[in-house]
């Protein structure tokens, strides 16, 4: 089962290496990991999607890293989750119209049109990306780039407040 974990870490050099080394050392499997700044310049937010039956040990091991400030595991449905992907699809001129129609339904945006391919950008919850990929499979996916997941708890207090209440 996949779990989504948000990790607030101090924005220090090497903190990504610390987290990924810990995952490797403890034998935990990362499905995706993203990291970026937050509204507080001293903190970065990592969103980790992990495969595994049970998150307790992972959460505790994350907390053991000195630069980890706060770890939250999202229960399904309690967070807004987004991914972005760029997908290049085979599109000979005859089928272009058909493909573009299908894309419109999935809210995919054509961002590059070549002689025999179209590249789409899809942003949204992970299911939307999966659906679109499935749809495009019939035409032939030539290349795919996917971000990891980012997530924010629904109706979340600001990061600052959470720090205090931690």
């Amino acid at each position: 089962m996949k779990h989504v974990i948000a990790v607030l870490v101090e924005n220090k050099p090497g903190v990504l290496a610390r987290v990924s080394t810990m995952f490797a050392r403890r034998g935990f499997n990362i499905h995706s990991l993203t990291v970026g700044p937050t509204e507080d310049p001293t903190l970065s937010r990592m969103t980790v999607v992990v495969d595994g039956p049970e998150m307790e040990q992972i959460v505790k091991q994350l907390y053991k890293l000195v630069h980890t400030v706060k770890v939250t595991e999202f229960e399904p449905g309690t967070a807004v989750e987004r991914e972005i992907m760029l997908v290049r699809v085979k599109a000979d001129p005859k089928r272009r119209g058909e493909i573009l129609d299908a894309a419109r339904v999935s809210e995919a945006k054509a961002v590059d049109v070549g002689a025999s391919t179209i590249t789409f950008e899809v942003v949204g919850p992970p299911e939307r990306l999966a659906d679109f990929l499935q749809l495009m499979a019939t035409y032939g996916v030539v290349a795919l780039a996917k971000s990891g997941r980012i997530a924010l708890a629904r109706d979340q207090k600001s990061t600052k407040k959470q720090l205090k209440s931690a």
């Binding site: 050099p13 090497g14 290496a17 610390r18 080394t21 810990m22 050392r25 000195v66």
Partner: peptide
């Protein structure tokens, strides 16, 4: 050293 000692220490720092 910083990378190699990371999983062998409670914490480690490279001073810059």
């Amino acid at each position: 050293t910083w990378g190699m000692s990371m999983p062998a220490t409670k914490h480690n720092t490279l001073i810059t």
